Amino acid sequence: MLGNLKPFEIVLILLVIVLLFGAKKLPDVARSLGKSARILKSEAKAMKNDGAAPAEPAAQEQTAPRTIQAAPGDTASARPVGEPDRTTTQG
Rank of each mutant, 00 (worst) to 15 (best):
Pro80Trp: 10
Ala64Leu: 11
Thr67Cys: 04
Leu5His: 04
Val18Gln: 02
Glu56Cys: 09
Met1Ala: 15
Gly3Asn: 13
Asp85Glu: 11
Pro84Ala: 04
Gly34Leu: 05
Leu15Tyr: 15
Val16Leu: 14
Thr89Asn: 06
Ile39Lys: 00
Gly3His: 09
Val29Gln: 05
Ser36His: 13
Asp85His: 03
Ile13Gly: 01
Pro57Glu: 08
Pro80Tyr: 11
Thr89Ala: 14
Ala70Ile: 03
Ala53Cys: 13
Ala59Phe: 03
Ile68Arg: 00
Lys35Phe: 03
Leu14Gln: 14
Leu26His: 02
Met47Gly: 09
Ala78Val: 08
Thr88Gln: 14
Leu19Gln: 10
Ile39Pro: 00
Leu12Thr: 01
Ala76Arg: 15
Ala64Phe: 10
Leu5Val: 10
Lys6Ile: 15
Gln90Val: 13
Thr87Leu: 12
Gly73Phe: 07
Met47Leu: 08
Thr75Trp: 12
Ala76Glu: 15
Met47Gln: 14
Ala76Met: 12
Arg79Met: 04
Ile17Gly: 02
Pro72Ala: 04
Thr63Cys: 10
Ala37Trp: 06
Lys41Cys: 03
Leu40Tyr: 08
Ser42His: 07
Ser32Thr: 12
Val18Pro: 00
Gln60Cys: 06
Gln62Phe: 01
Val29Trp: 02
Lys45Ile: 01
Val18Met: 02
Val18Thr: 04
Val29Met: 14
Val11Gly: 00
Ser32Met: 09
Ala52Thr: 13
Asp28Arg: 08
Asn4Phe: 03
Ile10Pro: 01
Lys45Leu: 10
Val81Ile: 15
Met47Phe: 07
Leu15Val: 08
Ser42Tyr: 02
Val29Asp: 05
Ile13Leu: 09
Asn49Leu: 10
Ser42Val: 04
Ser77Asp: 08
Gly34Lys: 04
Ser36Cys: 06
Ser36Phe: 09
Lys35Trp: 01
Leu20Asn: 08
Asn4Lys: 14
Thr67Gln: 12
Ser77Cys: 04
Pro57Ser: 11
Thr63Val: 12
Val18Cys: 03
Pro72Cys: 00
Thr87Trp: 05
Asn4Arg: 13
Val11Glu: 06
Gln60Thr: 03
Ala37Gln: 06
Pro57Met: 06
Ala78Asp: 10
Leu15Pro: 00
Val81Tyr: 05
Val16Met: 06
Pro54Lys: 00
Arg66Thr: 13
Asp85Arg: 09
Gln69Met: 06
Asp28Ile: 06
Pro65His: 07
Ser32Phe: 00
Ala70Met: 04
Pro7Cys: 05
Thr67Phe: 13
Ala78Tyr: 07
Arg86Ala: 01
Ile17Cys: 05
Gln62Pro: 00
Lys6Cys: 06
Leu12His: 01
Pro57Asn: 07
Glu56Gly: 05
Lys24Phe: 13
Val81Leu: 15
Gln69Glu: 12
Ala52Tyr: 01
Gly73Val: 12
Ile68Glu: 00
Gln62Asn: 04
Lys6Arg: 13
Pro54Tyr: 03
Arg38Asp: 01
Leu12Phe: 02
Leu2His: 05
Leu19Ile: 12
Gly51Asn: 08
Gln60Arg: 14
Ala78Met: 05
Leu26Trp: 02
Ala70Gly: 15
Leu33Gln: 07
Gly3Arg: 07
Glu83Tyr: 03
